[in-house]
């Protein structure tokens, strides 16, 4: 589709061409922004999964240790108090 020469200077046509160009640029920029956020989010999702796994292991260890120490203390107290 070509703009015929007699329409080239037409105010309506010029306005529409300009508007469409601006809209197109805005949409292109918006797409780029969305893509970048997707990528950041994916990287972060990967990292937090690893962190959570680490954290969850340490928490279980802490719990087990607390329970073991409490149990040992209980036994020792029994020995001390006869």
């Amino acid at each position: 589709l070509r703009v015929p020469p007699e329409l080239a200077a037409n105010e309506v046509v010029t306005k529409l061409l300009g508007d469409n160009q601006q809209l197109r640029e805005a949409l292109r920029r918006s797409n780029l922004a969305l893509r970048q956020r997707c990528e950041e989010m994916e990287g972060w999702q990967r990292r937090t999964r690893e962190e959570r796994e680490f954290l969850s292991c340490r928490f279980q260890e802490a719990r087990a240790l607390v329970e073991r120490l409490a149990q040992e203390n209980h036994s020792l107290q029994g020995l001390v108090n006869g």
Binding site: V12, A26, R29, R37
Partner: peptide
């Protein structure tokens, strides 16, 4: 009538783009 090129539509897209970017950061 020709639809006005809602400048605010283009403005708005810039605003949300940078808001989301800094929120995520």
């Amino acid at each position: 009538s020709l639809p006005q090129l809602d400048e605010s539509l283009v403005e708005e897209s810039r605003t949300f783009e940078s808001r989301l970017q800094s929120l995520l950061q």
